[in-house]
Every structure is written in C-alpha cells, then in structure tokens.
Design a protein around this nucleic acid. Structure first.
Lengths: 121, 121
DNA sequence: ATCTTATTTAGCGAAATTGCTAAATAAGAT
DNA sequence: ATCTTATTTAGCAATTTCGCTAAATAAGAT
C-alpha cells in the first residue's frame, strides 16, 4: 500500500502540465510512434523512448525535461533503465493501479458511510 | 469525462500535504467525529464540517485553510454550501470515481498494448 | 587519447506557492 | 444600529518551482 507521503509525491508530480503529458504518453505509447515494426527487432530498441526522444516533443530545453523525468521517477511513476549511454523510460503500472484502487475504495467507503448516516434521520 | 486541465488541477490540489489531509478527512468523515448522534437531528447540522471546524485540526491560520479549501473546491474535489453564515463542506465523490476510472483504463490499455508489442517479436 | 552522443548537475532569475496579519464582507443575534 | 460569528480578500515575505545556459559526467566510436 502507498503511504501518504508517496501519494502526495505522485500528485505533485502529475500536477504539472509537462510531467502529466510525459506520464500520459509513456503509458499510452505516445513516444513509441517512431518504432518501425518492419525493421528487425534488434533495431527497435534504438528507436524506443529515451530522454532525448521525449524532449523532442516539447519546446523546453533537454535539462528541463531531464529534471521532470527525475521527478516522475522519484514518484515511482516511471522506471528509467540505463543501457550503454542511453536511458530508456517505461511506465510503472503497479503504482497507477494502486492509486486507482485507493480512489475506488475511498468512494466505496464514502458511499457506505453516507448510507449509515442517512439511516439515523 | 475529465479533460487534461481538470485532471492537472485535481493533482495540483492533492499534491500538498494540508490539502491532501483535508481531502482524505472530508471523504472518510474525519471531521464528523464531533457529531453526537444521541442529540436530536436538528442539532447535528451545528456540529458538521464547516471551514472553522476543519481549521481546528491544523496549526495554520484560518485564512490559510480557507484558501486551501477554495483550491479543493475549484478542482471540484469538494462541494461548499453556504447556510446562513456558515459554509458546509462535503466531498464530490463523482470526481474521485472518474479519476479512479481514468487510472484503471490507463493500466488496462497499457497491459493490452504491451501484449501486442511482445507478440511481434 | 580524442570526439561524439546522451544525460545530469550547478547556478541563476522569474514566477508561483504558501504562510502570515489586518481589513473587508456577510449574516444572525441583541 | 451594534455586536458577534464565520469566512474571504488584500497585501506582504519566505520558500519552492520551473525555466534557462554552461559545465560535468558517462560511455561508445575513431
């Protein structure tokens, strides 16, 4: 289970337009558009999502995007893996799944409590 | 469906410790602890969650809490209803439910896409 | 060893956030 | 009309965030 500090870190990370767009595209494969499946599979890694590939989609300088990615990584939203001198980025779906569950449970509990409260009147 | 701007506003609102605690307690009934169900129901409203009740739980000045509540309200996370000279606060579970769905769908789509990608190798 | 490519770190300034107190507003009670 | 209670608005200072450029680091290629 995520503790409060972790949740707040996640929300802070997603509460910025640039980071939210990165997050969304990393999850939905928005940065994998350059992958050409007709090429041999060993070439595919060379086209995959790395820091500079993501930076190409924004009007901000590369170091700015690098820092945004670090924040998403520190919040456990993405996973960054260094292979040779490139860093490949992929989503961490477990965190997002947990977050979804937190919200669902919150709403469920709320609905239960509301029912009980109304019952007393 | 929530658009991107709305989602970012929600995340920004929840990415602050004070606002997150308010959010959590408004949803889970943390501020309703003072409600004494043995008293006649017309007295219950007088004990319910209003701005100053919430402020009592924090070491911050009342205007600070007031501004935090405004931000939660602007993000549609809570609903503030003025009755006479008090403002009563309740959660907006629909927004949170929608947010939970967004995350779930994201993870589901990700899992599907991952399967397809692996299939090509 | 040097060059190139990929990324991060350092340091700076502008803008936003978050806290405060004092004053303004709104509505009920005397 | 004045007082009290509940809340917001205004204006200010400290801190954080977010952008930049320049420099540092890391690793592969020549």
């Amino acid at each position: 289970m995520l503790d409060m500090k972790q949740k707040i870190k996640i929300f802070k990370a997603l509460g910025n337009e640039t980071r939210f767009k990165i997050f969304k595209n990393v999850f939905t494969g928005g940065y994998a558009c350059s992958i050409d499946k007709s090429k041999p599979s060993e070439d595919i890694i060379a086209q995959a999502t790395c820091v500079s590939t993501i930076a190409e989609h924004f009007d901000f300088a590369l170091p700015t995007i690098s820092r945004h990615l670090k924040e998403l990584k520190d919040a456990d939203i993405i996973i960054m893996t260094k292979i040779s001198n490139k860093i490949y980025i992929k989503p961490n779906p477990q965190i997002i799944e947990e977050l979804a569950k937190c919200f669902s449970t919150l709403v469920e509990n709320y609905n239960e409590n509301t029912y009980q409260f109304d019952n007393t009147n």
